[in-house]
Design a protein around this nucleic acid. Sequence first.
DNA 1: TGCGATTATATCGTGCACGATTGAAATGGT
DNA 2: ACCATTTCAATCGTGCACGATATAATCGCA
Lengths: 152, 152
Amino acid sequence: MPATDPPSPRLDDFLCFAVYSAGHAFNRLYRPLLDRLGLTYPQYLAMVALWEADGVTVGDLGRRLGLESSTLTPLLKRLQAMDLVARDRDPDDERQVRIRLTPKGRALEKPACAVPAELAAASGIGPEEYGKIRAGLDALRAALDRAGSTNA
Amino acid sequence: MPATDPPSPRLDDFLCFAVYSAGHAFNRLYRPLLDRLGLTYPQYLAMVALWEADGVTVGDLGRRLGLESSTLTPLLKRLQAMDLVARDRDPDDERQVRIRLTPKGRALEKPACAVPAELAAASGIGPEEYGKIRAGLDALRAALDRAGSTNA
DNA sequence: TGCGATTATATCGTGCACGATTGAAATGGT
DNA sequence: ACCATTTCAATCGTGCACGATATAATCGCA
C-alpha cells in the first residue's frame, strides 16, 4: 500500500464513536429513571439548567446547553404543556423569550436530585475516574468548538 | 439544609452532559466534511463498520454500532437508495438481512479515510490525550451497559 | 408432523437535532 | 425620522433514536 494512503480507520479507534456510544448508553440508563419524573433526557438536562438559573432567555439556554433554537423551542413548548415552565416575551426586548419555572417545575428539582447519584451508583464509576473522563471531554468539546469556529 | 438532602446537581458536574455536548460538537464538526461525501454522521459510522466487515447481518451491525433495528433499517434503506449498499435476505435464514457494499460503496472508503485525520488535525487533540479520553469512554460505556443489563 | 416459543427485521409513533428560512423587533447610521 | 442591517425566536423539512408492536421465519419438543 502506497505510503501516501492512510490505513482504513477502525471504528474502535474513533473517539467520536466512543462519545456516540457512551451518549446512547447514558440515554438508555437514564430513561427508566426519568420516566418516573415524566421527562425525557434532553428535557431533564434543560430542567437542570433552569434549576441553576431561572428566568433565562431561549438564547441563553441554547448557549448553555449547546442547542439551536429549532431544537429548544419545541422542547420548551412541551415543558410548558406539562406546566413545568412558562414562556413569555421579554417586555424590554420582544425578540427575546424568557423561560421561567412554574411551582410544579421547581418542585420537580428535589426528586430529580437523586437521579445522577442513583445512576452513578448503578454504573460503578468512581468519582475520581468520573472527574478525569469529564475533564477530558470538556477539553475535547472546547477544542472541537474552537475548530468549528476557525473553519467557519 | 438537612444532611439527607443532596445538593442540587450542577450541569457542569454531569458526565452525561459532557458526553452529550461532545457528541453534538463532533456532529457539527464532521458535518461539512461528510457533506462532501454525501453522508450524514450516523451513515458515515455505519459505512465505516461495513468497510471493516462486509456482508454482516442487520443484527450484527446493530450490535456493532449499539443501535436498534428501528434505527438501522431506515438508515440502511437510505444507504441502499444511494446505491452504497445492497440489502438481501439470507437464503439460509430468511429472518436475517445481509448488508453488502456495492462497488460505489466500496469506492467511498478511500476519500472517507481522510476525514478522521482531517478532523483530528482541526481539533488540535494530540494522539496521547485522544487515546486516554477514548479509553475512559470505552470503560464508561461498558460500565453503563453492565448497569443497564443488571437493572433490566 | 404440528405447534408454541423464540428470533430477526420492519413498522409506527414520538422526541430530538440541525440547517435553511421566515417574521418580528431592535439597532445604528444617515 | 427613516431605512438597512442585525438579532432573536419560530417554522419547516429531514435524519436519526428508541420503545412498542407486528410480521415472518426458525427451532425444538411432544
